[in-house]
Amino acid sequence: MQHIRTLRHSGCFAWHVGVDANPLCRRWDRIEAVVVAVLIVVACAMIPVAWWVGHAVYDAGVRTAATQTATRIPTTATLTQPAPTAAGGQDPGTRTKVPAVGQWRLPNGAQRVGTVAADVGAPAGTAISIWIDASGAPAPAPMSRDQIIMQAGLGVCYTALATLVLLAAAFRLVRWRLDRARFLAWEREWAYVEPRWMRRRGADGTP
């Protein structure tokens, strides 16, 4: 029984993809089946491509993080005056970061005063961990491992999404062209069959 059910499912699949000997399966149906098979193969082939894109993005992120770590120095800034109590009308309870004036020491021992990101309402004298570049100006922290992994994951997702969109668009275009060909073929066949069918109905006395 299981063998019969398997054969039945196989026959249904063959009928749907147009590879059986069904006379109702036209040339356009077989072309569509071939196109679907090709698109499936392309989609499967894009899996390692998406993985390669993610790996390349990850490697690029690692190199960027290494460069940032080599050219930036962690230090501590001290606020010289209280940070603003609100940022653009935002609720102070949200503890958003606001620009504040602070000072920090450079590797050569010199003092630098500038703008740093501090918590809303932070009092003067608050110590804030910052990163500075070779010129001594504040700079973003080097990319973390989590950020690198997130970028690599986004690269994989974007590649897969772009592939699916392009394949779906290609299938829709091919399906539209094949449907037009089907309709034209049906019109030609009906133009050939209709006169004979009408004459037969008249000969049989069918109204």
Score class of each variant (00 low, 15 high):
98 V>C: 06
142 P>E: 00
111 Q>S: 15
105 R>P: 06
144 S>N: 07
86 A>P: 12
158 Y>F: 15
157 C>S: 15
102 G>I: 05
194 E>C: 11
163 T>C: 10
115 T>I: 08
122 A>S: 08
193 V>P: 05
107 P>V: 00
152 A>N: 02
98 V>Y: 03
129 S>F: 13
158 Y>C: 11
119 D>A: 10
84 P>D: 08
175 R>S: 02
130 I>M: 05
102 G>M: 07
82 P>E: 14
86 A>G: 10
86 A>V: 12
129 S>G: 12
96 T>D: 10
175 R>L: 00
161 L>K: 01
155 G>Y: 00
115 T>E: 03
164 L>K: 12
109 G>I: 10
145 R>I: 13
190 W>T: 07
118 A>V: 06
188 R>L: 09
99 P>T: 06
194 E>K: 05
149 I>T: 13
136 G>N: 03
196 R>W: 14
89 G>D: 02
145 R>M: 15
186 W>G: 03
109 G>D: 09
151 Q>A: 13
134 A>T: 06
84 P>S: 05
139 A>T: 03
190 W>C: 10
141 A>N: 01
82 P>S: 10
174 V>W: 00
119 D>L: 11
125 G>H: 08
100 A>T: 05
182 R>D: 06
169 A>Y: 04
102 G>V: 01
191 A>K: 08
104 W>D: 02
96 T>E: 14
119 D>S: 14
134 A>D: 09
113 V>C: 11
84 P>G: 04
167 L>D: 01
104 W>M: 00
179 D>Y: 06
132 I>Q: 07
91 D>G: 05
146 D>T: 10
142 P>K: 00
131 W>R: 04
187 E>Y: 01
176 W>L: 14
159 T>D: 02
88 G>M: 05
160 A>Q: 11
166 L>W: 07
118 A>Y: 03
158 Y>W: 14
199 R>M: 09
114 G>S: 03
154 L>Y: 07
139 A>R: 03
93 G>Y: 07
98 V>P: 06
197 W>E: 15
151 Q>W: 15
112 R>V: 04
179 D>H: 09
122 A>W: 04
178 L>Q: 00
161 L>Q: 09
156 V>W: 11
116 V>G: 07
183 F>D: 14
95 R>G: 13
144 S>C: 13
143 M>V: 09
179 D>T: 04
111 Q>M: 14
182 R>S: 01
135 S>F: 10
115 T>Y: 01
102 G>H: 04
109 G>R: 12
182 R>K: 10
